[in-house]
Amino acid sequence: MTKQLLIYESAVPMSASRHGKLSLEVADYSFSASINAVPLMAVEFIRAATEYAIVFAEVRDDVLPAAVLGVRPDQNLFLSEDSRWQANYIPAFIRRYPFVFSATNERKIVTLCVEESHPGLNSEGRGQRLFNDDGKPSPYTEKVLKFLKEYQIHFERTRRFGRRLKELGLLEPMRAQVTTPKGETLTLGGFMAVPRKKLRALGGDALASLAKTDELELLYLHLYSMRNFKGVRDRLIDSPLSEDTEPENAGESAASVH
């Protein structure tokens, strides 16, 4: 499997014959060092909105939410120098690593896969066993399966939410721009947001429908989260790779981040 899903390089189906003697020890989050955004499920908005800027991105035919982690394409500003996560809430996409479901095109059959390049996989018994001695999934793997099944359910709900935003024409392209004192301009683009003006212009039926499915609350959490771009700026200032920066004002609309 070629590198896809941002942080996966060699995820393969789990089996007792191949992984029966392996254990997993998760020491840090260094695997996420080179990403500047991570997919976010709708159910995570209420926790994530207090710490991350939540934006939207087109992924093939879908529109999916994402938590912004940095300005440079290959820099995660939420990692400490010793690769610890520097936020109270860790997105589920990060927490599920090194496991992932692969699915057929019809999404009828899913297979649990594990990223074999994960440095924590070992045959010395460090951490959690993946299989029992009888070849059956360990209690740890059973918990992983339960977590990924719930993740998949929330992923489908999040896809429907993205489709609704497209149908209502609420999304606009956005970008965030930061200029350092030395004149270096860093631009974060390729994302979309929902401007307040479009939300205010919605008709009563559309608003009532969004409120009934709790999607209106998600949109207000998205708007609330945009203030966290300042936190990303502050993390960039404190980063060893950057000096003081002076971002432009985000304004009152999510889409007016320049």
Rank of each mutant, 00 (worst) to 15 (best):
K3M: 14
L5I: 08
S10T: 01
A11W: 01
V12M: 10
V12G: 01
P13E: 01
S15A: 14
R18P: 09
G20Q: 06
K21M: 07
L22I: 02
A27I: 12
S32K: 05
S34A: 04
V38Y: 02
A42L: 04
A49Y: 08
A53V: 09
F56E: 04
A57D: 11
E58Q: 10
V59F: 06
V59R: 03
V63F: 12
A66S: 07
A66Y: 10
A67E: 13
L69P: 11
L69E: 00
V71Y: 00
W85Y: 11
N88Q: 14
N88V: 14
P91G: 08
A92T: 15
A92E: 09
F93N: 09
R96P: 13
P98K: 06
F99M: 12
F101L: 10
A103P: 02
A103N: 13
T104C: 01
K108H: 12
K108D: 15
K108M: 14
V110Y: 03
T111A: 04
L112Y: 09
E115C: 07
N122S: 02
E124W: 07
G125R: 01
R126V: 14
Q128Y: 04
D133P: 00
D133C: 04
G135V: 05
P139F: 13
Y140K: 06
T141G: 05
K146A: 11
F147N: 10
K149C: 07
Q152A: 08
Q152V: 04
I153Q: 12
R157F: 06
T158G: 11
G162Q: 03
G162I: 03
G169D: 08
R175P: 13
A176T: 14
Q177L: 11
T179G: 00
K182C: 07
T185R: 08
L188V: 04
F191R: 00
M192F: 14
M192S: 07
A193W: 07
P195A: 08
K198F: 09
L199R: 10
L202Y: 04
T213P: 13
D214F: 03
E217Q: 13
Y224N: 03
R227P: 12
R227G: 15
F229E: 04
D234M: 08
R235G: 08
R235P: 08
I237G: 00
I237Y: 00
E243M: 14
D244C: 11
T245D: 03
G251T: 04
A254I: 12
